[in-house]
Nucleic acid binder design. Sequence first.
DNA 1: TCCACCACCTAG
DNA 2: TGAGCTAGGTGGTGGA
Length: 904
Amino acid sequence: MNFQILDADYVREDKGPVIRLFGRGEDGRSVCCFVPGFEPYFYVNTKSDPGSAGELLKERFSSAIKKVEIVNKFEPVGYQVSPKPMLKVTTYDPGNVPEIRDEIAGIPAVKEIYETDILFRNRFLIDRELHGMGWISVEPSSDSSPDQRLYCDDVITASSIEEIEKLSNAPLKYLAFDIECLPLGGSLPMPETSPIIMVSLSFSPAFEGYGSLVLVSKPVEGVSDNVETFASEADMLNRFFEVFQQYDPDIVGGYNILDFDIPYIVDRVSILNDPVNTVRPVTGRDGRLLSYRKIGTRTMVSMPGRVVVDALPLIRSQFSLKRYTLRNVAKELLDMEKLDIAPSEMEEHWEDSGEKILRFIDYAQRDSELALELFMRLRLLDKYIAVSQVSGSLLQEVVDGGQTSMVDNLLLREYGKRDRVIPPKPSDDEVGFRNLSSEGLKGGEVLEPKKGLIENIIIMDYKSLYPTIMMAHNLCYTTVVEKDRPQGETIKPPSGGEFVSAEIFKGVMPTILENLLNRRIETKKRMKGASSEEEHRVLDATQLALKILLNSFYGYSGYTRARLYSLPLANAVTSFGRENIINTRAIINGQINKVVLRDSKVLFTEEVDVPRAGDRTVSLSVVYGDTDSVFVQCTSKTPISLDDAGLVGSRIADTVSASLPDPMELEFESIARRGIFLAKKRYAIWVFERAGNEWKDSIKVKGMETVRRDWCELTSKTLNRVLELILKEGNVEAAVSHVRQVVDRVRNIDVRKDKDIIDDLTMTRMFSKNASRYKNKQPHLTVVEKIEERTGAPPAVGERIPFVITAGKDLFVNRAEDPEYVREHNIPIDVDYYIKKQVLPPVERILDAFGVDISNLDYDSKQKGLFDFSDRPREPAVNNRKKREEKPSGSSPSARSQSSLFDF
DNA sequence: TCCACCACCTAG
DNA sequence: TGAGCTAGGTGGTGGA
């Protein structure tokens, strides 16, 4: 029998722990597979003779410890010539391990204890070389059949398990749900007082022919046939859990279900069950009841055999949006409208028996449909499934957790194969110590940009810079010289320290990275020959997962809560990176300096013995770079075609790559016809990228206000237009005139007449911590306070708060106001603020690059400035350009490119 | 007026 | 957005 591993856990039986693997088969049947015979264990490093220490442990813990063996293991960190004897302690029960560990820790002969905090199910997957979302082939054993009541199509016991390769996913079943509560008097619903009145469910694939189902807790006439009505809330909830188990979903999803729907249902059920049990919220494949745990502000839900996924956090981390309400997310990402009923009108709709209640039902249905659409249409889980397969962690862990557990998982697998033990997660004290004693981790190098307008830029970047540095220089926990000294030369990073070369000992991490990198190259190759769209999608997700994992190791090494934290290692990586980008600049500016184009060939100066007619010289100069990228300006007396620039780019990239150790590689990316560079990490370019035989152009904006969520839409729109006019059309005059129009329009805003403009004036900022922790006033905090005052329900920490600035004499922060409130009460907007502080400064920074003298500008409406052309000829930009052209070439950074700006 | 500081968000 | 990292720009505020 073949199936894909969705989840795993264990149960205790008489003979010992038994692993349970949950999954779905290629035939579409859900499976629970019991695997007996796997035992928990951990390692102990002793101060003296391990033999006698082992005897001591066996005696002291005879009821818990099954056996103690002496094994040869390397310690986690540092190059070591040979392993040392340690104790491998096998216990009867995984649950006892923490307790035994704590007692053993007190024994004087014990130096260190390793791998006691690896979850039993993970230990199993790692040791058996199985992976989350991996396919396995199971040989069922005939003699024993598990008798537990499980909510699965098939229940088997395995006699053997083998991982198999399969490109597609099993036909996974998705269920998304959403509840509606009845807020009494328009206030926030609380489980104690507000009943759940509807539950809406959406299915993929359909459930008994229905794509969605709405359960309603009171009788309603005239509903469509995917609506079921009940006499009570309890009846409705019981039906919900019944449908849940009948459908038997693999993925249980929704929007904000972790922070709202699931806790609400659980709390409500316990209230309904108070004197007598009337509702049984069975949701786990093992029959477990729905429950949740709060860890800090985070809600954890465990549903054995299934995977619970809240779309909200996933969308937050993957898409940069101004707001993450379901309404906005559906609009931005799905181009779908959420139906809406204001909380204050819900009671009225609910009490109605005609059109209003039917509308309310539609509204409920739409919410679960939207949630399901987010999963299906955005293919939200593809990436997580692939990361699970590649890292080996279970899907639930990948979805819930960060990069740490994935890296841990990969390290555990490879450390195990190399006979190395892994240290435990650091205690809070240890983390505190690490934070305090850290002299700091230095990051990447950012080259000062040549500011202003620049034409013909070759953009190149290093492919996976940090991972390739680790591979190239064998940087690893296991290669740091701090215990034994190796023979011969060592690798000395610019940051100091020493690492053993790969010839003497190849590091564990470089080995893992090499595997990941090779698999990625292989996967990309297979993508080209993919036989179906589905196969292509799976392979694409896989290569993306490999990239994510490749890039996770560096961050992990500098993360103070990581099992394997190493500042010397992390600093070695970045120091090589900084050295590398500076060397790259030196090679391009100095060694290469210029190239000659001859018959579609790129020649270096030393390759040109006799100049020929038609030779074109292109001078090269690095004008910007950030961590792993270089931007090279090309100057030539004749225009340079995209193809020629591409050839030059490839030749440079190849030349630089050849000077570097494998697998470091500089890659040609794209060509920018024009770019405006304002500061480090702030620029806009008109780029051309190769797409087959074509060049595809686009404008890319980095760091500037158009991509920042704390600026208003008016700013983004205006700036985008200005950038487009300047970059694509070279039309500064038109840009200035556009700004003038915008300013005019803003001056004449009448909030009462033009409510839509409020959307364009709205800024958002994240409410990032509790109000009391803010040292300074903040505009969005003002709004949070106002909302709390008005409704009693302040937005939650972590939400993005929209606000506009209203007119008045008070301090800026105090004039921030909720856009909704402004709309309803026709509150005047601070027009001056929007012109002077929102629209003009970003535009000025750009026009400044054209030498427009802004020092005399006065934007006050009464005095006419550059942007108020009403009684002034609109020529400043043009005049300015002429002035600049008269200057000798080279006297100003943008002078030369300026002259060609309008000829292009 | 200048500067240090907080806060935010972004680049990579 | 409660768990990978640092570098860097910009705006508002309040005190020197």
